[in-house]
């Protein structure tokens, strides 16, 4: 009984000190900004996966990825934020739009954008969201990020750690990018080469009959 009471008072003391130092119910300005940008990001992501207009999905994906870049800036990871803007917003979304155009996606509303198992998918994702949010909130309830001082993700810090400790994975990643480049070229060339040989074979066949 006394042990439990002591543990209870100790837990109470830790929570009160945490609340005193960080202000549990009075969020700082960074937290409010993070929350607002996070709501915009999450809303754009939900519209991306639920809209029936395919091109609008790609454009809302731009909003979601840009919001994530702002979140990186709020977390003082500047280099990651600009890499996010350059690679995701700059190239990945453009690639996706080109893919939508090349597969002749309908411009207006397409009624078959969602498959028949969307309610099962909704149940699975809501269950996963509930479990993950519960676990994460329970685990990191008394943990705060200290954002004061020098930024933790400036270009100098990131470059120094990347080229001091992570040189070998960096080089392996460059080889992987080269392999992906060659693979994409091979995948997009092979069908055309096959079609060309088939066309020449049929042409030869028609000339033979003639």
């Amino acid at each position: 009984m006394t042990l439990a009471a002591a543990a209870g008072t100790a837990a109470h003391a830790t929570t009160t000190t945490a609340a005193e130092t960080h202000g549990f119910l009075s969020p700082t300005g960074v937290e409010i900004a993070f929350l607002l940008v996070g709501l915009v990001t999450l809303g754009a992501a939900v519209i991306t996966v639920t809209t029936r207009q395919l091109v609008h999905a790609a454009l809302w994906l731009v909003v979601a990825l840009g919001g994530l870049a702002v979140e990186y800036l709020l977390l003082t990871a500047e280099f990651i934020a600009w890499v996010q803007v350059l690679i995701y917003v700059g190239s990945v979304v453009v690639l996706l739009l080109f893919g939508l155009m090349l597969t002749r996606a309908p411009i207006g509303r397409s009624p078959d954008a969602d498959s028949g198992n969307r309610w099962i998918a909704l149940a699975v994702s809501v269950a996963a969201a509930g479990a993950l949010v519960w676990v994460v909130v329970d685990a990191f309830r008394t943990t705060w990020i200290d954002l004061d001082g020098a930024p933790a993700g400036s270009t100098e810090v990131t470059g120094a750690s990347l080229f001091q400790h992570w040189v070998l994975p960096f080089e392996a990643l460059s080889v992987l990018l080269l392999a992906a480049l060659v693979g994409a070229i091979v995948l997009s060339r092979r069908a055309k080469a096959d079609a060309a040989t088939r066309a020449s074979a049929t042409r030869r066949g028609t000339e033979g009959t003639r």
């Binding site: 991306t48 990191f140 309830r141």
Partner: peptide, 26 residues
């Protein structure tokens, strides 16, 4: 900043993407 904010946002974004992977046809 409370660590739960980015962790919860990341969990919700992951589950949004999970719904999209399971429910989309294109």
């Amino acid at each position: 900043m409370h660590l739960a904010y980015p962790a919860v946002l990341s969990a919700l974004l992951f589950c949004t993407g999970l719904y999209g992977v399971l429910a989309r046809r294109n």
